[in-house]
């Protein structure tokens, strides 16, 4: 196992704590907004920790893609009607599923870079094969499920929360598989696990919509 630097370790611990604080009891609107911002801060800290621990050779391309994506995301968030928030969230969840799938295929396409091959570098180890399959399956289910949910929620919100919570949980599970594939990324596994567990809890709590 690679030894994490103290700075990176603090970053991951901070990110996990911020994610947990974001889920702490929401008493009123102000507290809810504060908690949501903690979630965002946790994500930013996780990205920083992820970049800090790796030798980045293509930083300009990565930052360009992140800036372009952030710009498009900002426009969506600013211009979208709040009445169509649930269908938009379903589409955003589909994007997360696609991102998960693409990440898994990128790992598969250059497996030698991630020390997940057998000692003779001939093929994936059994565990890696299972984890990669899990990441791909989660990504594909989230992508397809979210697109189906988008179709179902256009014009009607019934039951969207429950399914979105369960799809978010599955994204978390896929994130855990990706984190376990990447050498020593326990922080990322913890954060993805938090999303997976919270999504599962909310998905089980929210009742399915009754047909009128």
């Amino acid at each position: 196992m690679t030894m994490l630097s103290p700075v990176a370790m603090l970053g991951w611990i901070g990110a996990v704590l911020l994610f947990l604080l974001a889920l702490r009891t929401w008493s009123d609107g102000r507290a809810a907004r504060r908690r949501a911002r903690m979630g965002l801060a946790g994500m930013m800290l996780a990205m920083g920790a992820a970049l800090y621990t790796h030798d980045v050779v293509s930083l300009p391309e990565m930052l360009s893609m992140a800036a372009l994506g952030s710009g498009i995301g900002y426009l969506i968030a600013r211009r979208a009607s709040m009445r169509s928030a649930w269908p938009i969230l379903a589409l955003l969840q589909a994007m997360i599923g696609a991102a998960l799938l693409l990440t898994a295929f990128a790992i598969d396409g250059n497996a030698i870079a991630f020390a997940i091959l057998t000692p003779d570098d001939a093929r994936l180890t059994g565990t890696s094969m299972v984890l990669l399959g899990l990441a791909k399956a989660s990504g594909a289910i989230v992508l397809l499920g979210s697109l189906l949910l988008y179709r179902a929620t256009v014009g009607a919100r019934a039951g969207a929360e429950r399914w979105l919570a369960l799809l978010a949980s599955l994204s978390g599970l896929g994130g855990v598989a990706i984190a376990l594939l990447l050498l020593g990324e326990a922080g990322l596994a913890g954060m993805s696990g938090i999303v997976g567990a919270a999504g599962l809890a909310l998905g089980l709590l929210l009742r399915p919509a009754k047909a009128d």
């Binding site: 992820a50 790796h54 030798d55 991630f114 909310l202």
Partner: peptide
């Protein structure tokens, strides 16, 4: 909270950053 969780479920993005850095 489900809305927030949907936003937080973009956490595999940190994995994508690591993969893009190493691949």
């Amino acid at each position: 909270m489900v809305m927030l969780l949907c936003a937080m479920s973009a956490v595999p993005l940190a994995g994508a950053w690591i993969v893009a850095a190493e691949v």
